[in-house]
Design a protein around this nucleic acid. Structure first.
Lengths: 157, 157
DNA sequence: TCAGTTTTCTTGACGGGTCAACCAACTTAT
DNA sequence: ATAAGTTGGTTGACCCGTCAAGAAAACTGA
C-alpha cells in the first residue's frame, strides 16, 4: 500500500525534468523572442512572418494549399493572416486560370524588401541561439526531436 | 549584387532545419497528444492537469502564489483555471488566517484520485516518448534545450 | 496612525492556435 | 451528363497564453 502511494507522488524535481515541460518552456521563450524582434523590426507577428518566409522559400505564384500542406499550418489561421498581408500589400494574389478556387501568391516588392530586412536579423538570431551548442549536441538535439515528434503522434502506447 | 541577393534567399530545406521550427512542431504535437489523453482519460485540459500536478508536488495547503512563482505560469490563467477546478471539487481552497488575501490550496480526495489515475498514464507516456532516445541523446537534448532557453532570453545580439 | 508601497489575486482584452462546419470549384466514375 | 466525392479556402467558435489594470489585504516607515 505504501508503495502504491509512493508511485503516485511526483516531486517538483521530477516535474521540472520532464522533456515535455522543458520543451514547452523553451518554445514559449523562443516565441516571445521572435515576436519581440518582429514587432520591433517590421511590425509583423509570427504568423505573418512565417508566411512571408515560406512564400519566399517556395517561390512565386504558389497557391495557399501548397504552403499549408508542406508546412504544418492551420488553414484557418493561414487564411486570416493572408488577408491582412494582402491588404497591406506584402503579398499579391493572382487568379489561377486553371483553378478558380485558387489564388497564386507571390511576395510583392514591398514584401520582398521587408523579408530581406528581417531574414538578416533572423539569421543572426539563429546563430546566437545556437552559438554555444556544440555540433554533437546539435546533432543529438535534432535526432531526439525527430524521435519525440514521431512518438508524440501515437495515441496508443 | 548577385551575392547580396543570394544571401537573402532561403530554401525550404533550410527553413525546415531551423531549430526554432523543429521545436515549435514538436511542441504542438506533444500538446495535442497530452490534450487528447487528458480529455479522454479525465476530462481535463492541459492547464488544469498542470495545476493538479504542481499542487501534488508542492504539497497541501499551498497558496497560489507559491505555484505561480516557482512554475512559469501566468497569474490570470492560473486564477481562471483554479476557479473551475475548485468548482468541480478537485481542489479545496481554505482561508489563510494569517493572510486574508490568500487561499491555501490542496487536492481534494477526488483530486487525488484523478491525479493518481492520470499520473500513471502520463508516466507511461513519458516512457513511450523517450523510449528510443538514447542516453547520450537525452543528455544532449537537455543541455541544448537549456542553452537555447538562456539564449532565447536575450533581446540584443 | 496613516500615507505609500508591495503582494496576492481577479478581471478584461486580445492575439495565437485548433477544430469543425461550410461553400464553391474541381475531379471521377458511371 | 451528372451524381458523388474531393479539394481549396473562408468563417465561426472556442481554448490557450500573455499583458496590463486594478481591488483588497498586508507591510513599511515616518
Amino acid at each position: 500500500m505504501k508503495n502504491q502511494l509512493a508511485k503516485k507522488e511526483m516531486p517538483a524535481s521530477e516535474l521540472l525534468a520532464l522533456a515535455t515541460y522543458r520543451i514547452s518552456k523553451v518554445h514559449s521563450k523562443l516565441n516571445a523572442q521572435a515576436a519581440y524582434i518582429l514587432r520591433k523590426e517590421a511590425g509583423l507577428n509570427l504568423v505573418q512572418w512565417r508566411i512571408l518566409a515560406w512564400l519566399n522559400a517556395f517561390g512565386p505564384k504558389v497557391p495557399s494549399s501548397d504552403i499549408i500542406n508542406k508546412v504544418n499550418m492551420d488553414k484557418g489561421l493561414f487564411s486570416r493572416s493572408l488577408k491582412t498581408l494582402v491588404s497591406e500589400e506584402f503579398i499579391v494574389a493572382d487568379a489561377d486560370d486553371l483553378d478558380q478556387r485558387r489564388q497564386l501568391l507571390s511576395l510583392s516588392d514591398k514584401g520582398n524588401e521587408i523579408y530581406g530586412q528581417v531574414i538578416t536579423i533572423m539569421r543572426k538570431r539563429q546563430k546566437h541561439l545556437l552559438h554555444d551548442v556544440t555540433d554533437t549536441e546539435k546533432a543529438a538535439l535534432f535526432s531526439a526531436l525527430e524521435k519525440l515528434e514521431l512518438n508524440a503522434e501515437r495515441r496508443d502506447f
